[in-house]
Design a protein around this nucleic acid. Sequence first.
RNA 1: GGCCCCAUCGUCUAGCGGUUAGGACACCGGCCUCUCACGUCGGUAACACGGGUUCAAUUCCCGUUGGGGUCGCCA
Length: 480
Amino acid sequence: MASSSAPRVRFAPSPTGYLHIGGVRTAMFNWLWAKKLNGTFVLRIEDTDQERSTEESRNVILDAMRWLELDWNEGPEVGGPNGPYFQMQRLPLYREFADRLISRKLAYRCFCTKEELDEKRTALKAQDPKAQFRYPGTCRDRQDQPDKPFVIRFRTPETGSVTYDDLVFGTITTPNTAQQDFVLVRSDGVPLYNFGAVVDDVSMGITLVARGREHMVNTPPQIMICQALGYEPPRFAHLPLMLAPNGEKLSKRHAAVSVGEYQAMGYSPMGVLNYLVRFGWSFGDEEIFSREDLIRKFDFANVGKADGKFDPKKFADVAFEHLKRPDLTSVPRYQEMVRPFLAEIGIADPPEPKLAKAIPAIRERARSLKEAADALSYFFKSPVFDEKAKKKFLTPESATRLGELRSLLAPLDAWDEASLETAITGWLAAKNLAIKDVAQPARVSLTGRTVSPGLYEVLAVLGKEESLARIDQGIRFASA
RNA sequence: GGCCCCAUCGUCUAGCGGUUAGGACACCGGCCUCUCACGUCGGUAACACGGGUUCAAUUCCCGUUGGGGUCGCCA
């Protein structure tokens, strides 16, 4: 399927927590690029931090990816020709690549202990807090000491520079003096990020690495490793950062940052994706996109360079737009998404036809699926009365009106919105009344509250029998 | 501090030498209206600063200022 020009991209989260919305944006940009160009999206789990990696976190991340419908062509559970897709299962490969570098003197064993180095580092910092500690090169040319544990360090060239052409930032040049002899493999044989990522990227045939700008500093060392290994480096695209409203690094201190929280709040997957895609990327003046739109329109050429600040209000609005518009969220899809939220409030199995009729009535006044469930509740359960509303609108005088309304409705055969409107407006005209004279008492009777969709819509969704029963109850309350 | 990056309304952004600097969110008014929404009309609001280049700079170059990333046997 994939032609030779089709990109191979990847998303490589570490399973050390939830899936952060910044990570979602990175994953999505990669995914969009693969979809657009018929490429391959690889999901790789970077679990080399054994202290912090957990299986639970891995599952949370995979679930979030699935919820967002960012499907991967190769990776956990789907497999693929370049597996395994968990770094801890690829240890022999890293060993092999590291040995290659050592035998060519491009890397060397370092027997300095972490303690020794930490001591030197803290001593230096104590002397001059602004000084940067660099590995002094103690083991660069030292003979092997077979009994002692060692890390493997990269022999960084002392002159020259690394230049690459970033798809977003353009040409970036970094002097090699900015680098030290960094560690490739820990003393326990587990690779560090820069080495593991490069070995995997080259062995998995990754052609473009798109990731957050915080990784820009890792790119020159990674290119060095890549070239030392004898591979052509992939291309890079760094994405501007999503900061908190106050300009700090966005964390849970500032806002909800995990996908799971937005799912729980009742945002739709496309609501989440649409907000995040517009963060750093634009397509003229367009704000709202369907998934298909995005695949067609996305391009790294339209990714901006400036960091931005997260805006929960805008996020909520974009999410709402997706829920509101039938062209973006079909009624069946809406039903499927709102059902878990209905279940949460005790409406376990709402009948499909009624739900399908109710959704168009509430969708433009529910900013989230959670609000939608609430707005839908009285269609499926007895209304819960707002006491203040009851007192204000279900009065003895309104009892008369409600009685008349009931008499009007009781003989009606046609019970659709248009017929109800015709019948009721005719009656009002004959009685020289306005709809507002009867709407609120009727609304409170039918829904238990003062806020709801239009009266005719509510009646139509509720059906004749239920509507009459609720009006009767309203009359009883009003007369009491 | 070293290295790297960035700079248009409060926020997300359009703009790719000549525009009344556009859109969206938020905010403030009006309209619509059976409530609430939706919708709709309008308003407030931005090119950080200083030098160049050019007939002409928001746009190109340099500097200043401001902001950010990163300096681990984390990723």
